[in-house]
Amino acid sequence: MTVHVLILCTHNSARSVLGEGMLNHWAKQLGKDVRAFSAGSAPSGRVNPLALDVLQAAGIDTAGCRSKSWDEFTSTDAPPLSIVITVCDSAAAEQCPVFFGGTGQPVKVHWGYPDPSDAEGGEPGKRRAFELTRQAIGYRMLQLLQLPLATMGRTELQQALAAISRS
């Protein structure tokens, strides 16, 4: 059974898109039955071009990347979410909607990253910040994929995801 993961950031333009791209890439590379999605509570309507650039430079497919609302994941025909990861502090502080389609509410965890769009140093500084954020998110996604997701109970999964957030 596919494990569906939703990665949230307020505007769904950078960090959450990086998370979606990295998790789907690593899951495919490792043969894991995991599918990532990203969304935002107040989507900007566009993906930051630097997010797409660093993903593409790392050989990651960006086809289909778009900024979208978390409302797409609240309908009864949405993928049944197992895990919801917030990657920005403002999204972590927001009240998440009820996600339907599964056997219950997904396990939620916060893995915060500074907004690479706010990096100093002009274009080179921002590009470096985006690449470092992509690497940091990718590392945690690899850790997530090492978990025995198919056999973990809710409490065990919550504890494992929290442990990853501290690494």
Rank of each mutant, 00 (worst) to 15 (best):
H11E: 13
H11G: 14
S13E: 05
A14G: 12
A14K: 07
R15Q: 05
R15I: 05
R15K: 09
V17D: 01
V17S: 00
V17W: 01
V17K: 07
V17F: 06
L18Q: 06
G19V: 06
G19T: 01
E20G: 06
E20I: 02
G21W: 12
G21R: 14
M22A: 10
M22Q: 11
M22K: 00
L23Y: 13
N24M: 06
H25C: 01
W26H: 13
W26G: 00
K28Y: 10
K28E: 15
K28N: 11
K28R: 15
L30F: 08
L30M: 14
L30R: 15
L30S: 08
G31M: 11
V34N: 14
R35E: 15
R35S: 13
A36W: 15
A36M: 14
A36L: 15
A36S: 15
A36I: 15
F37M: 02
F37R: 03
F37Q: 02
S38R: 01
A39Q: 02
A39P: 00
A39D: 01
G40F: 07
G40C: 04
G40W: 04
S41V: 04
S41G: 09
S41Q: 08
S41N: 09
A42M: 14
A42C: 09
A42V: 13
P43K: 04
P43A: 00
P43N: 01
S44P: 06
S44F: 13
G45P: 11
R46S: 11
V47L: 05
V47C: 07
N48G: 10
P49V: 06
A51F: 08
D53H: 14
V54N: 01
L55G: 06
Q56G: 04
Q56I: 03
Q56T: 03
Q56H: 00
